[in-house]
Design a binder for these strands. Structure first.
Length: 771
DNA sequence: GGAAAGATATTTTTT
DNA sequence: ATATCTTTCC
């Protein structure tokens, strides 16, 4: 079978590049994943590298899985042992293998964001810190931010007393984590980075091993991730590691969580990239859609530069609708969606996108009322649910009793008469001796001592009893001994929770099978020693290196592995009923997906671009990239909508239409509601709200528009709240409020950049812009 | 220990 | 409007 079959010239060039670092600028829908996986397969097939010499990094488990699946269809190799995974997954593997060198306990556990926050709250309380002045969330952000930049507390520069205190608390937090044997997400990466940078033989070992490092979504890397990659490639040591980075600066939408697009330019410079390949052939969208995307994104400066092209025809125009309210916007979406489904478009091929989650509600209501099946992306994932986290906490305590977060979560759940008072005492004892809560239990006396002692016995008993058991049975026993099942059985609404708990046995079974734990030593042998596995233990300069060919089961117990898995892979959201349903999601979560038809909703100033983006450096550029991502999700049909009036935080808001409309090519658009001319004011043209030609051209589409057009009344002044008007000095604005009766009416008008003005309607010269 | 009332915050998200 | 967290009261 020929791997290179059906690749276009750019793709082919990228796949078959010589062994040098390269940057692949891969536009939306340009076959990025295909190039990445084919490159790996090609390198292996041509004998340039063995599967063990490859590392491929992604950001999400989904992307990693996708890569593995595709790779195994291309090559007859066992992908299980390969180093393909997320940054966090691979760092976890590295740290498990070298836990001693990384100064971690063998069964260290991973805190998810929830655990991290609760741990910080606890720490603030214990340290008697004013949580008004130092909110736990801020501190968490501060700590993660520092770690994402590779900075320990002693390296963070503090410029004021507040920051100095935060740094102090950061140090305290790290100490506490170390004491408990837990690491947060950022710590996984930072630890791995420090491990490799301090331990030269180890670093060199991996540098020699990974001849080719491939990185997906490179524009999303943060500073720490980039530095880690540099380290692995032996960038400063002439180790000749080769990085194949694939990314798209135009789709960089995660600056808010530390992603640094600048890494792309830095990479080009640092690695003297001679091979910059642009994948600009788009295989997804029709012409008008692609033109819209190209036009829009051209408004961003600081681009590496890229223009997508397609062989598909122009296709349908992008349809735009101005609704009178959010409710009516939802109504319109449903009408259009129904007509699409009438044309044979599957429900699951229709996506409704919004900038923020709060917008989904109205749409959901409308869909529900119309009886159309839909699924909302996001929401609680399986391993995040309270009952599942409780069960996990018992397992965590059995594997590492010093995890205080786990301890506190279940010490009195289900209730066993251990109240706040007892916990306070216990906490004090733990603080006094600098030990974990679990370890402090023996110091407790009296009634508290008895009940806490009973809890410890419960955990120890469960551990003892399950020593001989395989993971799924172990889970089963824990569910029963913890009394979680009985507890929820007595609850009114406990049925779903019980089901989720039972589900955990299946999750464990599946995990054991997929990760190959079944064929290795059962749990009662404990984690197999390296000698038992006998797999490539290398000694260099007295430092023991378990070669990473050793699969996961040889470096950790099934339980530890399962707990890692629960933290690193939170699982799916709702048990998705397999039925054909419309897809609702934020623009962010739509990244990487594609649909036949896409609705981009709420295109209003303040919402999209979001108002908070105005405050951030290059914030609007990022919003524009977000819009670019949204547009490029669509294959055949694209709809955009905005509304004059919308409920937000319990208040009615009147927003202007999004500036992004002015950045789209007119000839690709079809305004379904009476046309709002762009830039008419700047061009000194008369407003022509009722563009008759456009209206007539709208044809059948407009039946819906007409039906839905708001008929509700204008005020006695002749103007209506929500209406867009133009003023000679202030430009376009939206009427936010009208005060006073006929004759003496004044209007509050939001002119966006010029602010909100109160104008006397009998004096001010206003022009209608729409309707 | 748990329900009820009051306070608070509300962009985007993965690991 | 609403969800979530905190305080207050039985």
């Amino acid at each position: 079978m020929n791997l290179l079959h059906n690749l276009n010239p750019e793709q082919l060039a990228a796949v078959t590049l010589p062994s040098q670092s390269a940057l692949i600028l891969a536009g939306a829908g340009s076959g990025k994943t295909r190039v990445l996986t084919t490159r790996i397969a090609w390198l292996i097939q041509t004998g340039q590298v063995s599967p063990a010499g490859i590392m491929a990094v992604t950001f999400t488990n989904k992307a990693a899985k996708e890569m593995l699946t595709r790779l195994s269809t291309m090559l007859p190799v066992n992908t299980r042992g390969m180093w393909i995974g997320t940054f966090h997954g691979l760092c976890n593997r590295l740290l498990r293998t070298h836990y001693r060198d990384a100064a971690l306990p063998q069964s260290f556990q991973i805190l998810d964001s929830q655990d991290q926050l609760s741990m910080i709250k606890r720490m603030l309380k214990a340290a008697n810190v004013d949580d008004e002045k130092y909110p736990a969330k801020n501190l968490m952000y501060f700590i993660n931010n520092a770690k994402d930049q590779g900075l320990r507390a002693d390296k963070v520069e503090a410029y004021d007393p507040i920051e100095r205190k935060m740094v102090e608390l950061y140090a305290l937090y790290d100490q506490q984590c170390q004491r408990e044997g837990v690491v947060d997400f950022a710590e996984l990466l930072l630890r791995a980075y420090e491990l490799l940078s301090r331990n030269t033989p180890l670093r060199q070992h991996y540098q020699m091993r990974f001849k080719h490092v491939l990185v997906d979504e490179f524009q999303d890397t943060n500073d720490l991730q980039y530095n880690l990659l540099k380290l692995l490639a032996g960038h400063n040591e002439g180790m000749g590691g080769v990085i194949f980075a694939v990314g798209d600066d135009d789709q960089s939408i995660y600056a808010f969580r530390g992603a640094n697009v600048g890494n792309m330019q830095a990479f080009e410079r640092d690695f003297r990239v001679q091979n910059l390949i642009k994948l600009e052939q788009n295989y997804r969208s029709h012409g008008h859609i692609l033109d819209s995307a190209n036009f829009l994104i051209a408004n961003n400066t600081k681009r590496l530069g890229k223009n997508l092209r397609t062989d598909a025809g122009q296709g349908e125009p992008v349809r735009i609708y101005e609704a009178s309210s959010d409710l009516e916007e939802a109504q319109w979406i449903i009408e259009e969606a129904k007509s699409l489904m009438g044309e044979g478009v599957a429900r699951s091929e229709i996506a409704i996108l919004y900038r923020s989650n709060a917008q989904s509600r109205v749409i959901e209501h409308a869909l529900f009322a119309a009886g159309i099946p839909y699924t909302v992306y996001g929401g609680l994932r399986y391993f995040q649910r309270a009952e599942v986290k409780h069960a996990i906490a018992y397992l965590q305590l059995m594997d590492n009793p010093h995890n205080d977060s786990a301890f506190l979560r279940v010490v009195n759940f289900p209730t066993r008469g251990i109240g706040v008072r007892s916990i306070e005492q216990l906490q004090m004892a733990a603080d006094t001796y600098g030990i974990s809560l679990y370890a402090a239990v023996p110091y407790m006396t009296g009634k508290a001592g008895t009940s806490l002692g009973a809890f410890v016995k419960l955990v120890e008993g469960a551990r003892f009893e399950t020593q001989q058991l395989a993971l799924p049975e172990m889970v089963r026993v824990v569910l029963e001994r913890s009394n979680l099942l009985t507890h929820y059985a007595n609850e009114k609404e406990g049925a779903d929770r019980i089901e989720n708990l039972e589900q955990m046995v299946n999750a464990a079974t599946q995990f054991v099978q997929e990760e190959g734990f079944g064929q290795f030593a059962p749990a009662h042998l404990g984690p197999p020693s390296q000698a038992q596995v006998g797999d490539a233990v290398v000694y260099q300069d007295g430092i023991e290196i378990l070669d990473a060919d050793a699969p996961l089961p040889s470096v950790m117990s099934p339980l530890s592995a399962f707990l890692s898995h629960a933290s690193l892979e939170a699982g799916d959201a709702q048990a998705q009923a397999g039925q054909d349903a419309m897809q609702l999601m934020t623009v962010h979560s739509a990244k990487g997906l594609e649909f036949d038809a896409v609705f981009i909703t709420g295109l209003e100033e303040g919402l999209f671009p979001h108002e908070s983006s105005a405050r951030e450096l290059d914030g609007v550029d990022e919003e524009r990239r977000l819009m670019y991502v949204a547009i490029t999700r669509a294959r055949k049909r694209l709809y955009m909508s905005f509304t004059q009036q919308r409920m937000l935080h319990g208040q009615t808001r009147y927003n202007m239409k999004s500036r992004f409309f002015d950045e789209l090519p007119e000839e690709a658009l079809k305004w379904l509601s009476p046309r709002v001319q762009s830039h008419w004011f700047a061009n000194k043209k008369a407003p022509n709200a009722w563009d008759d030609a456009a209206f007539r051209n709208a044809g059948s589409d407009n039946k819906i528009a007409q039906q839905l057009t708001q008929k509700s009344g204008s005020s006695s002044s002749g103007w209506r709240i929500g209406e867009t008007v133009a003023h000679a000095k202030f430009g376009e604005g939206v009427i936010v409020n009208i005060e006073g009766g006929a004759g003496a009416a004044r209007a509050q008008i939001n002119f966006g950049p010029s602010g909100i003005k109160v104008l006397d309607l009998s004096v001010a010269k206003l022009e209608r812009v729409s309707r």
